[in-house]
Design a protein around this nucleic acid. Sequence first.
DNA 1: TAGACATTTAGAAAATTATCTAACTATCTA
DNA 2: TAGATAGTTAGATAATTTTCTAAATGTCTA
Lengths: 92, 92
Amino acid sequence: MSLNDTFKALSDPTRRRILDLLKERDMSAGDIADHFQMSKPSISHHLNLLKQAELVLDERHGQHIMYSLNTTVFQELMKWVLQFNGEGKDRQ
Amino acid sequence: MSLNDTFKALSDPTRRRILDLLKERDMSAGDIADHFQMSKPSISHHLNLLKQAELVLDERHGQHIMYSLNTTVFQELMKWVLQFNGEGKDRQ
DNA sequence: TAGACATTTAGAAAATTATCTAACTATCTA
DNA sequence: TAGATAGTTAGATAATTTTCTAAATGTCTA
C-alpha cells in the first residue's frame, strides 16, 4: 500500500528470494514453500506481506493459489531510487 | 556491506528521511538530529546503520562529523530493481 | 589544560517481526 | 459426501530492532 510497506517487505532475505523465484515464473504457494526449509505457514506469512506491499499478485486456480510479480510497484521503487542518482544537489 | 544491509537500512522511515535530507546537502550529525524529535543517540544509531550499508559516507571536520550520500550503492540498488522490470520471463 | 560542545558507545526496556505447531477453510475427486 | 490436498489463520515464543538515559570520547578555545 505505502512505500514503507514496500521497503519493509523487501527488508527480509526470504521475501527477496521469493521475488527471485517469481521472476522466473508464476508459482503456487506450495511450489514456493518447497524451495525453503521453513514451514508453510511462515511462507504464507511472507507471501501475505509481499501481497500487502503489492509486490506480488495472487489468484486462486482451484486448490492452488498462484502468485506472480506485480511490476507496477517495482516501477515506483525505481523512481524512488532514481532520486538519489543524478538529480539533487549540485556536484563539483 | 551486503545487499541485505542495504535493504535493512532502507526499511526504516527515519533512515529514509535522513537520506532525503542528505539528498539536498551534506549535513553534520547534529544538523540531522535537529530535524527529528528523536534523541541524538538514536539518530547516531541510524546514521551508523546507513554507514554500514554504505548508503552514506562520514568525514570528521573538527568537532563536527559531516554525512553525505554515497551514490555508488544506489546504483547497485538500481540494478537490483531493474531485474524486476523488463527482463525475466516471457510476457504475453 | 579546563570547560564547552559534538558525537558516539553502552546497556536496558519496549516494540516489532519471524517462526513454529495446531487448527481451520476451501477445493477437488472417488 | 468423505477423504485428500492446498493453503491460511490463530496464538505463542524467540529473535531482532528501536529507542531511551547515562557515560565516554574527541576536538576546540579561552
